[in-house]
Amino acid sequence: MLWKTIYGRKELVRTLQEAIHADKVAHAYLFYGPEGIGKKTIAQVFATALNCLDGQKGCGVCLSCRRAAAQIHPDIHYIEPDGKTIKIDQVRRLKKYAYLKPRESRYQIFILQQADTLTTEAANSLLKVLEEPPVGSIFLLLAENLSALLPTIRSRCQEFAVSRLDRESMAEFLRAQGRMTGEQIAEIMVWAEGIPGKALELTDSQARQQLYQEAVAYLKALAAGKGVSSLAAKLAETEDLTAVLDAMILALRDLLILPAAGKHPEVLAGKGSLLCGQLTEKWHRSACLAAIPVLLKLQRDLQSPINVRLALENAFWDLKEVYNRANSCGNSL
């Protein structure tokens, strides 16, 4: 049974199974949730089950299921962004298929990955087919950012939130990956925030702590007034830049809520207060509060094609200013 490969989300699974069972499958579904949450897995299992030859159970052994697993099923189509967006030509091609009969199975299924990247034109040209698709065509839309989708698209789909995993399901999921101690699992869970995809990236615990330490080091250096430009240059050459920035944000956030988290260490990302304890002296809370938006903006900026080093330098100067300002206020007391 393929459904077993979906951890947690019992309600979602039940609803989908029920729809298949009662033969009331809608023509368009929208699964949304953050990156790495498992939208694609769900869509794949659902699509496979719909076309499964063994009573639509999703047996995983019949010819159809095996083809689907290898992603060579002729009736399950994947549409991915071409470059950064899904273009109108891709949608036109899709529609050409949609108005044909499924080749061999009962349903023809289109899985639109990152449907929130549909261009306005592409999204609009999808509207008609999404409203009244030909018999046997089913659309599965996957999206991270709901608000980037046209309301007219959303109103044509059944929307399902793909939720973060609760503790038990997450633990189960991690145990299923094997070779992990209970302690490691507990630690990963804090970082992954219930996102299995993130958890898989994080399985290397040493690297994780190293990242965090690196981030703390940068923050300390900034506070100590070291040369901003050289810091930025150093960071620009780091390979996992986004990860370090992530860690910096997490560290600042930890600092912010550290005092409040006394009894509930599970809300903290850094392991214990040891690491960020080094920072509490230096980074005032108001500084943290102002610094996080700076880093968030930097991350957003970095997604567009710009000079990484310049952007970093600019952000670091901002950080420093934020830091100085907060501290000059503190000194005046």
């Binding site: 608000s147 793909v162 939720s163 219930g194 809520i257 005092p259 988290a261 009894k263 809300v267």
Partner: peptide
């Protein structure tokens, strides 16, 4: 009670609600 508020947010996040 800041801790309480943060834990509430944690619950919301864990149960996968749409923050918007």
């Amino acid at each position: 009670d800041l801790a309480k508020a943060l834990l509430l947010l944690q619950d919301v996040a864990v149960s996968g609600k749409d923050f918007q």
